[in-house]
C-alpha cells in the first residue's frame, strides 16, 4: 500500500482522480440530491416520499415564482443590452488614444472590485427619494421633480438595472477593448480606403468580426442574471411588495427561511436547466472550434 501510494506521487493521475472525486461529490452529487428532493414533498427536513413533478407544477401556480421569472427576463434583457452598449462605447473611445486613458479605465473598472452588497446599498441611498437625487433636485428649486422609482412597484426593477449596469459595464469594456486591440490593422486601412464612416465600420465590419468576444460577454452577464442575489438583497430586498423578487432569491428564501425544501429544490433545478440552456450554444461552438 505504502509503495503503491509512493508510486502515485510520480503521476498526476492521483491528483486528477482526487480532484474529480471532489467535483463529482460537491457539484454533481449535490445537484443530484437537489433534484431528488425536488421530486418529494420535503418541507423542513428531507423526506423521500416521491410525488413526481408535482412541485414543479406547484411552482407554475406560485405567483411569487412567476413574478420572479418575469422580473428576471425583464431585468436580464435590459441589463445585458445596457451593459453591452455602454461597455462597447467606452471601449471604442478608450481605443482612440485619448488623454488620461489610465484615469478613465480606473474609474470605469473600480466597481468590479466592490461587493454587490455595497453596490446595492450605495444605489439604494442615492435613489432614496427623501435623501438622494430626488431630494437634491427638489432642494435646487424644482419642487415637483420626481425620481422615486425605487419605491414604485412598477419601476423598482429598473433601479436594479441601473446599479448592475454600473457594476458590469467595465467588464464588457475591458473584454471588448481586448478584442478591438487585436483587430487586424489592414482591416482599418481598407476601411479608410473605402471611406466608410467610422460608426458604420464598427456596426457592420468590426463588431460582426468579434462575435466570439460578444458571445463570452453575454454568457458571463447571463450567468450573473441567473445567480443574481446579493444586489437584490442589499438594494430592494425583493420589494416594494414582491416587485423585484428573482428566482435566486426565491430559492434561498424557501430553502432557509420558509422551510420548503422541495419547492426550493424544484426552483433551483429550473435555474440550473436555464443556465445550461444558455450555455449550450457557447459550449457547442467552443468545443467544435477545438476539434
Amino acid at each position: 500500500m505504502a509503495r503503491w501510494f509512493q508510486r502515485q506521487m510520480f503521476r498526476p493521475t492521483f491528483t486528477v482522480v482526487a480532484f474529480f472525486a471532489v467535483i463529482a461529490i460537491f457539484f454533481y452529487g449535490s445537484i443530484g440530491w437537489t433534484f431528488l428532493m425536488s421530486l418529494t414533498k420535503s418541507s423542513l427536513m428531507p423526506r423521500y416520499d416521491f410525488v413526481g413533478f408535482e412541485k414543479y407544477a406547484d411552482l407554475m401556480d406560485n405567483k411569487r415564482w412567476i413574478v420572479s421569472c418575469i422580473n428576471m427576463v425583464v431585468f436580464g434583457a435590459l441589463f445585458i443590452v445596457g451593459s453591452l452598449i455602454l461597455g462597447s462605447i467606452l471601449a471604442i473611445f478608450i481605443d482612440r488614444g485619448i488623454r488620461f486613458e489610465g484615469v478613465f479605465r480606473t474609474i470605469f473598472l473600480y466597481p468590479l472590485a466592490i461587493s454587490l452588497i455595497v453596490t446595492g446599498l450605495g444605489w439604494r441611498w442615492l435613489l432614496d427619494p427623501t435623501l438622494g437625487i430626488q431630494a437634491m433636485v427638489r432642494d435646487m428649486g424644482w419642487e415637483n421633480f420626481a425620481f422615486d422609482w425605487i419605491t414604485e412597484p412598477d419601476r423598482a426593477i429598473y433601479t436594479l438595472v441601473i446599479a448592475s449596469v454600473w457594476r458590469s459595464a467595465g467588464l464588457v469594456m475591458i473584454i471588448v477593448l481586448a478584442g478591438l486591440r487585436s483587430v487586424d490593422g489592414d482591416l482599418w486601412k481598407a476601411i479608410r480606403m473605402e471611406k466608410i464612416p467610422q460608426w458604420r465600420a464598427y456596426v457592420q465590419v468590426i463588431f460582426p468580426g468579434m462575435r466570439p468576444v460578444f458571445a463570452s460577454c453575454i454568457v458571463l452577464l447571463m450567468s450573473e442574471v441567473i445567480r443574481g442575489y446579493d444586489l437584490i438583497v442589499a438594494m430592494t430586498n425583493g420589494g416594494p411588495g414582491i416587485s423585484t423578487e428573482m428566482p435566486a432569491k426565491f430559492a434561498v428564501d424557501f430553502f432557509f427561511s420558509r422551510m420548503n425544501l422541495s419547492l426550493a429544490s424544484a426552483a433551483s433545478i429550473l435555474m440550473l436547466l436555464l443556465s445550461l440552456l444558455m450555455l449550450a450554444p457557447y459550449l457547442y461552438s467552443e468545443f467544435r472550434r477545438r476539434d
Binding site: 467535483i23 461529490i25 457539484f27 449535490s30 445537484i31 445567480r227 435566486a248 433551483s268 440550473l272
Partner: peptide, 21 residues
Amino acid sequence: LFILIGLFVPYQAMLYPTVKI
C-alpha cells in the same frame, strides 16, 4: 466539459446538500 459546467452551476442547486454534507 464536466469542469466547465461546474463554473456555471447556480449555487442554489448545490447549497442544501452542501449544508447536509
